[in-house]
Design a protein around this nucleic acid. Structure first.
Ligand SMILES: [Zn+2]
Ligand SMILES: [Zn+2]
Ligand SMILES: [Zn+2]
Ligand SMILES: [Zn+2]
Lengths: 164, 164
DNA sequence: TTGTGTTATGTTATAATATAACATAAATGA
DNA sequence: TCATTTATGTTATATTATAACATAACACAA
């Protein structure tokens, strides 16, 4: 089982560079506009393996010459989350850069309630890899959130009815 | 695999009665104060297998003769969540009554994004029972949130240092 | 190149969620 | 009874997020 970077010393410059490169390449390939704000927000989120709230990001955008109204950051986050460059940590109402964008994965996180460092478990299945990752990283899991959102039978049927 | 009640016709009076009874008994046993507000909030959450926001609950408390300032409901929810009579659905910033309070379990939910009905998967392990439950209930999982919160090695060490 | 539709930003205002802080009351237990 | 803790009452405010509408930039066909 691999050790995650977030909780261990590592070449963090490389993290950032790689995340931005991957985003650049992906946007290029899919004709998405990786505009300055979007890029800058991702860069801010890459600056550390911590989850940042929207307003914290906004605060950091100001000095960089960007406008500081909430919609600015929320729109950028919407884009970044939609294309999976960033994940939202629901428990914290905060956002974190994805470190495995090239790999298809079900996001699952180890969140330190003390330092707010977030490690993304590199798992392909929505399974118990998290428990293993936690173990090999000496991370003590205290509380987990696993929420599956989707569509129930009833609503699916209702929608089918409506379509008729 | 069992069908969950939330998405299927069932004797819902029994759901409510059972949840309230369990809470009564548990509080009795552990010398917890199951005060009127706390009981009423649980009752409101039991009225349907839907997640309700704090302010929606607050709205319903008013006509019942309770005070309607936010802290009233947040305090009641804090109590109910702490003792696991209620779970918070982080994705929705909403709350749902627990249907398995007597069973030790890792909460995991199937949340319909259309009708906001929430079904709690009755799983003992934080595992893929959810996927199975979803299957036998014809629930289409579109998005999952699995977040493990705890303490990382570094913080644990820091705390050990501080204690010295 | 001009027009036209589309996507992205700018801007103001406000909604929705949650907590801080301090006061009072009720219950608990020497 | 008095002291202590626990629960409520109350006001104010913090934090997170979105609605709504205006403008700009961009894409691309006529
Ligand atoms: Zn790094
Ligand atoms: Zn930590
Ligand atoms: Zn029921
Ligand atoms: Zn539904």
């Amino acid at each position: 089982m691999t050790k995650v970077m977030s909780f261990n010393p590592h070449d963090h410059e490389a993290c950032t560079a790689s995340a931005l490169e991957k985003a650049d390449a992906y946007c290029q390939k899919h004709a998405l506009k990786f505009t300055p704000v979007r890029r800058q927000v991702l860069e801010i989120l890459c600056s550390d393996h911590k989850a940042l709230g929207a307003y914290e990001i906004l605060k950091r955008l100001g000095p960089l010459g960007f406008k500081s109204q909430p919609p600015v950051v929320y729109r950028a986050l919407e884009f970044l989350v939609a294309h999976r460059f960033v994940h939202k940590i629901e428990k914290l109402n905060a956002y974190v850069a994805c470190m495995h964008h090239d790999t298809s994965h079900v996001p699952a996180f180890l969140i330190c309630r003390n330092c707010e460092t977030v490690a993304e478990a590199p798992n392909k299945e929505p399974s118990d890899l998290v428990a293993q990752i936690a173990k090999t990283n000496a991370f003590t899991v205290e509380k987990t959130v696993y929420e599956a959102e989707g569509l129930c039978v009833n609503c699916k049927e209702d929608m089918a009815d409506d379509a008729r």
